[in-house]
């Protein structure tokens, strides 16, 4: 039930940002297609990215200004919370599509290619040499998709990275406690540590990718194993990048003295997001690296 401040609804003034957002996306899209196809308009891509950056700064800037100007009441705050929550849910479903692809490939497609289920003929006549083993080190057609030399193990760097990400979930919670208790110093320190952990995660992930490409022959085009590996970890890495950036913004705002102990929705939203990224990683660690 909505219980708050009826009678003083907040409705934002007309805003140019949505239209700019559309222009930014259309520019990016045209640029991206021309980049893929080596077309003439490929220069639109960087311009599109710049426009998107401008959009984020401008739009969030406007929101921050309104928030700092005290325009938001509890009802707006609640709408933002609901919005963020369901946005995160939509992200969960985005990852679900790729996890679904992973499960389907592992449980069904590979098994069938190897003659499982009612697919004996598939194996006999189309891929007689193929053996369904996960991780796939020999593809049905190795001339089209050169398989990796070895699979990515779960121990070592990935395990360490799991620890890093889990730790960062803890540190961001400590920072949040600091904020709630109105203790600026722990807030800033723990938030800074969280950002640092996020950056190290990304750094290590980049290391791992380089190792995969250069030493293991595990690439995006090395068959379904590489496809699912890089799509899942890659989109996750992209989300960590976004999350780290948002944490950095929160850090700067904290240093600037934004947020109060009972009014800091932006901080909480970023923390939720960070936890979400963490949970996705756990799923990844289990199903992509470990099992």
């Amino acid at each position: 039930m909505s219980t708050t401040n009826h009678g003083e609804y907040f409705i934002p003034e007309p805003s140019k940002w949505p239209v700019i957002g559309t222009i930014a996306l259309v520019t990016t899209v045209i640029g991206a297609v021309h980049t893929i196809h080596a077309g003439e308009l490929n220069w639109l891509l960087p311009i599109g990215f710049l426009l998107i950056a401008y959009l984020f700064f401008g739009w969030f800037g406007a929101v921050i200004d309104e928030s700092m100007g005290g325009h938001y009441n509890a009802q707006v705050d609640k709408s933002f919370r609901i919005g963020m929550l369901w946005f995160i849910f939509s992200e969960v479903m985005f990852f679900a599509a790729f996890f679904g692809a992973l499960f389907y490939a592992r449980v069904f497609a590979l098994d069938w290619l190897g003659g499982g289920g009612n697919n004996a003929a598939t194996h006999e006549y189309l891929w007689p040499a193929f053996n369904a083993i996960w991780p796939v080190l020999s593809n049905p057609d190795n001339t089209k998709f050169a398989p990796p030399a070895e699979a990515m193990g779960a121990s070592g760097l990935p395990a360490f990275n799991t620890a890093v990400l889990l730790a960062s979930s803890v540190t961001v919670t400590i920072a949040h406690h600091g904020l709630r208790a109105n203790h600026r110093k722990p807030l800033i320190i723990w938030l800074a540590i969280t950002v640092a952990l996020g950056v190290s995660f990304l750094f290590l992930q980049a290391e791992e990718y380089m190792h995969a490409y250069e030493q293991m022959g595990l690439t995006l085009d090395s068959g379904i194993y590489g496809s699912t590996f890089f799509m899942l970890t890659g989109f996750h890495g992209f989300h960590v990048t976004m999350g780290t950036t948002m944490l950095l913004v929160m850090l700067i705002r904290s240093i600037k003295g934004h947020f109060t102990s009972d009014n800091h929705f932006a901080f909480e939203a970023v923390a939720w997001y960070w936890h979400f990224v963490d949970v996705v990683w756990l799923g990844l660690y289990i199903f992509v690296y470990w099992l």
Partner: peptide, 26 residues
Amino acid sequence: PVLAGVVTMMLTDRHFGTSFFNAAGG
């Protein structure tokens, strides 16, 4: 988001060498 996911896989299958929808790569 699932629709977005499937077109994304299409994009990578088309241009970035993945083999989600190609039996030759599993």
